[in-house]
Amino acid sequence: MSGFKPVSHRHDDALSRVSWETFEHLVAGHYRGAGFRVEHVGTGGAGTSRTDGGIDLKLFRDQEIILVQCKHWNCWKVPHNDVHQLIGVMHTAGATGAIVVTSGEFTTAAIEAAAKFRHIRLIDGKAIRAMLGPVEEPTMPHASLDDMPSWIRETRRARASRTNRSPVIAAVGAVVTMAVALAVLYSYYIREIHVAQVEALRATMGRAVTSQRPMNTINGRPAIVHDTPMTKTDIAAWEAKNAESMRIIEKTTPSLPP
């Protein structure tokens, strides 16, 4: 936005909302009504293209040839560069005069530049509204970028070039995108398998540890662990052995004095 200044007053009316083509046609209609033969050479003219230094209208009357440049700018002031360019185009075309019309405002530098050349006339937003009178409200408000500052036009051209890429470039881009996506998915798949393997190993080790019964010890020596419950026969045999052991202890142990 360097080099462009915002307007002091932004108009909010029907003229500010018409398209740039409509703005050009409104200006052309005004000059036709003033007795000029109008040749529409700008982008708003049917079958024409902007190849004449930004000139939109050529006005013919008697010996007069006047070039008109329309600037449908509502946000930014028209700078002095446009005035200087118009001077060069005017001499090249052999015109007798030139007019710059804007729906907004001119910078002070532009006004001072035009004042140095009596064949250049500037018409700002207030003047053109007085010239055109009431303008019909457009059915669909239109915001054009074609007559906006160059930095906006360059942005639009860049976007258009990206949109209109060749099929080969688009196909290569699609293949690269797919390859990257597959690589990411493969990496994710491998990581998930590794995590599953680790979790399975941990679960197996946990079951192995819990299945091992702790060994009971008596004075540091392993004690008998019965994996299965004792039967009545085993209990009777154990009681018999215990009774026999007690009798042996009684016989071999001296009697204590009363």
Rank of each mutant, 00 (worst) to 15 (best):
R32W: 01
R32T: 10
R32K: 14
A34T: 06
A34Q: 15
G35M: 10
F36T: 01
R37I: 07
R37Y: 05
V38W: 02
E39Y: 10
H40L: 12
H40G: 02
V41C: 11
G42Y: 09
G42L: 11
G44S: 10
G44N: 07
G44H: 08
A46Y: 10
G47K: 09
G47R: 13
T48F: 07
T48A: 12
S49C: 10
S49L: 12
R50L: 05
T51Y: 07
T51G: 10
G53S: 11
G53E: 08
G54K: 05
D56K: 10
D56A: 11
L57E: 01
L57R: 08
L59F: 00
F60R: 07
F60Y: 11
E64M: 12
E64T: 08
I65S: 09
I65H: 13
I65P: 00
I66P: 00
V68A: 06
V68Q: 08
Q69I: 04
C70Y: 06
C70K: 08
C70G: 04
K71H: 10
N74W: 01
N74S: 04
C75Q: 14
C75K: 13
K77T: 03
V78E: 02
P79C: 08
P79G: 09
H80L: 10
N81R: 13
N81C: 01
D82S: 09
D82I: 03
D82H: 14
D82C: 09
D82R: 11
D82M: 11
D82Q: 14
V83P: 01
V83K: 03
H84L: 13
H84M: 12
H84C: 04
Q85P: 00
Q85R: 14
Q85V: 03
L86H: 01
L86C: 04
I87A: 05
I87C: 04
G88T: 10
G88V: 08
M90G: 03
M90T: 14
T92G: 05
T92R: 15
T92F: 08
A93R: 12
G94Q: 09
G94D: 12
A95Q: 06
A95D: 06
G97T: 05
G97D: 03
I99Q: 01
I99W: 06
V100Y: 00
V100S: 00
V100G: 01
V100M: 12
G104Y: 04
E105C: 05
E105I: 03
